[in-house]
């Protein structure tokens, strides 16, 4: 990265939810949805976020967008901390960060035409109206591979892949610096996923915005990302350059995750360090290293002390007591 300051800098982000119970609805516990997450994201860069269901990926995404209020932590966009800003003070930043959701069916208003959906942010932010707006929307349609004459159609007249293109066009309409993608291709047919992935990559190359890209499919994340962060129970346990992560995974959880991905080649029989057991509840996460209940390398220290993210080689950080900082594999 050439620039001094990253586009996005998240520091010690925490989001806790109260669990209430009983007739008095008293707080009986706390969901540690996000429990001290830090990362940076450069301009034009894609950071992938992977991890098991409930580990906090969407919560990270939503707090960055301030759709969910963080419990604590800083979210710096271009050096400005947007976490404490009021709704009005936040307004100019809203333009810069957009989101594309998993479900292109639920996220489009069925009573609006596709053109109105894509043009709505332009109206809301008083950027363009009338013919100028139509012109811009037509241009956006072309950018995402839709025909401008489809602007007058309603969402139900589009296929799933096309609807996701509409969502992408809307996200692009304000010229964002960062687009958060939360499982953008998971609901699409296999043969349609590649179309959308290629589109996302092409748009980024042309317009140089950044992606925070969430997907449960490791191969999809790996394909689109420059760097990948692996989350486990509300924390990042490993973050590295994509090629480095796949060539040299250092955290036992990352290793298990990679080994669990079924390879589409019948001759590639995996040498499986499969992990057993389920993901523990985020309500009372295990003490120390949260992975110790499933980790086959766990030592006594892992049960009591939480390992911090530490350098494990160039562009590579790991939170594990086994990491000796040299970046070598054992």
């Amino acid at each position: 990265m050439t620039e001094q300051r990253p586009l996005l800098e998240v520091t010690d982000l925490v989001k806790h939810y109260a669990v209430r119970g009983g007739v008095l609805r008293r707080q009986v516990g706390t969901v540690h949805a996000v429990d001290g997450v830090s990362f940076t994201l450069g301009a034009g860069e894609t950071l992938g976020l992977v991890g098991e269901s409930g580990c906090g990926k969407s919560t990270v995404a939503r707090t960055v967008l301030r759709l969910v209020e963080p419990t604590s932590g800083a979210i710096k966009l271009d050096g400005e901390d947007i976490a404490p800003l009021s709704k009005t003070a936040l307004r100019p930043y809203r333009r810069s960060i957009q989101i594309v959701f998993q479900d292109p069916f639920a996220s489009l208003n069925p009573r609006m035409t596709a053109g109105d959906i894509v043009g709505e942010p332009l109206t809301v932010h008083s950027i363009a109206t009338g013919a100028k707006k139509q012109e811009r929307v037509a241009e956006l349609f072309q950018q995402v591979g839709l025909r401008p004459d489809q602007m007058k159609n309603f969402p139900h007249q589009f296929s799933g892949g096309q609807r996701q293109r509409i969502c992408i066009a809307r996200a692009l309409s304000l010229g964002p610096r960062l687009i958060v993608c939360d499982e953008p291709v998971s609901a699409l047919d296999v043969s349609i996923q590649a179309q959308v992935i290629n589109l996302l990559i092409d748009l980024q190359r042309k317009q140089n915005f950044s992606y925070l890209f969430i997907a449960h499919d490791l191969a999809v994340v790996a394909h689109i990302s420059h760097r990948v962060a692996v989350m486990y129970l509300g924390r990042i346990v490993e973050i590295a350059d994509k090629h480095e992560l796949f060539a040299n995974p250092r955290h036992p959880y990352t290793q298990a995750l990679l080994a669990s991905v079924p390879i589409a080649d019948p001759k590639a029989k995996r040498a499986a360090p499969l992990i057993d057991g389920d993901v523990p509840s985020p309500i009372n996460p295990p003490s120390g290293c949260a992975f110790h209940t499933r980790c086959r390398y766990a030592i006594d220290r892992c049960k009591t002390e939480r390992p911090a993210l530490q350098a494990a080689g160039p562009a590579h950080q790991v939170a594990c007591w086994l990491n000796d900082g040299t970046g070598r594999s054992e």
Binding site: A219, H243, F246, V261, A264
Partner: peptide
């Protein structure tokens, strides 16, 4: 059309 996990 299916992305593969990058080989080392």
């Amino acid at each position: 059309s299916i992305p593969a996990v990058p080989s080392p």
